[in-house]
Design a protein around this nucleic acid. Sequence first.
DNA 1: TGTACATCAGTGAACGCGCGTTCACTGATGTAC
DNA 2: TGTACATCAGTGAACGCGCGTTCACTGATGTAC
Lengths: 212, 212
Amino acid sequence: MSETRARQTYHHGDLGPALLAAGIELAREGGPDAVVLRETTRRVGVSPNAAYRHFADRDALLAAVSDAALATLATAIDALFDAIPQGTRESVARAQLRAVGTGYVAFALDEPGLFRTAFFVSDNLERSSAASKSGPSGRSPLELLTVALDAYVASGIMPADRRPKAEFLAWSSVHGFALLCIDGPLRTLPRDQADAVTQRVIDMVEAGFTAP
Amino acid sequence: MSETRARQTYHHGDLGPALLAAGIELAREGGPDAVVLRETTRRVGVSPNAAYRHFADRDALLAAVSDAALATLATAIDALFDAIPQGTRESVARAQLRAVGTGYVAFALDEPGLFRTAFFVSDNLERSSAASKSGPSGRSPLELLTVALDAYVASGIMPADRRPKAEFLAWSSVHGFALLCIDGPLRTLPRDQADAVTQRVIDMVEAGFTAP
DNA sequence: TGTACATCAGTGAACGCGCGTTCACTGATGTAC
DNA sequence: TGTACATCAGTGAACGCGCGTTCACTGATGTAC
């Protein structure tokens, strides 16, 4: 959306960011496969090879788009996390876990293309470990999840021996649900039902962690 | 693997199944994107257009491959399910849920390409609702999961009001874990650890369902 | 049992497509003096 | 303040690639008589 009309000047002036923005738009519309180098230049109104002044190749562009998608996810979750009201250690811990899960799935449902792009792994490019992209607070979703789970233990609702690798368990549940909804057999589930089931997924995780 | 050497006869004699087998092999090696019509004919040793005698187009071939992948998954889970020893209703119910989850993740880790192909959704082609492909017993993974969860309620370890949509909750957890392992941030997790965490995922689901 | 012939399952060549990428280039920018 | 010139950011044309798909065809099969 950055530049649909023809440019006046020979130089674009801000082509790198403009290409990135176009790439993000493509990812939003169609996921990682839709991030096509020629199409991004077309959208910006520039010749295809101009992109090579700003990205080494198509993979580099896609990686930048993926990073941006991950950062957007991080920001969304961060906002939910920060909005949690004060309360007992236990209630805050529970609210934190719920915020991370809810934000994660909501982002996936709102922006399926970006979500898929965020977790797309190029064979050619080693990415920094996924979900390590952080929000404005500098905390990644994984870090926020860790904070929540540590608080579970600290507030006494989760036995310490269950704590190791608990991130993976919680993450698996919301990640799987998100993908079943956007890509998979649950893709016909209406949004309001998906939101309701999201809460039940989190209920299940919570109960699984806190069960005696 | 069906026909690497050149044919003697003009007619292949069994081209449809041979193409399907080659397509499955490609899916196994590289997922849905690797199911390339020309490559399947190349592997079978036949000209590209010969495929059109047996499949309407590339999408039809891919759909057939995807169905086959789904059936393989169903068969694997079915075998685990049938191997469950007799016991109390409760112990059988728990073993059933564990069998479905374990089989599901094991298949994903053993055959990531087939797993991804099984759940690939073509835009052009409406698939029968995923995981509805059944194993030799005629029961799909989703049906087996339903059986297990019904047994949870019947044996009294799961409150009936938790039963609706519980399939989605359990499915999400194992599906998400499988994808994090094969596609995502957990792809570097060694297999033995992945197997161990799989059991903990199932522990969590179980505790979530049966918690007081 | 032998032969004519319709049917079927393959071939060979070609198509248009859009992609990523490279080449030699040119117009604009900004810095040194 | 003005000018020369190196640097930079774009252009235009072209490349090779592999894909899915279509065309008119031909060799093999099997059925009717």
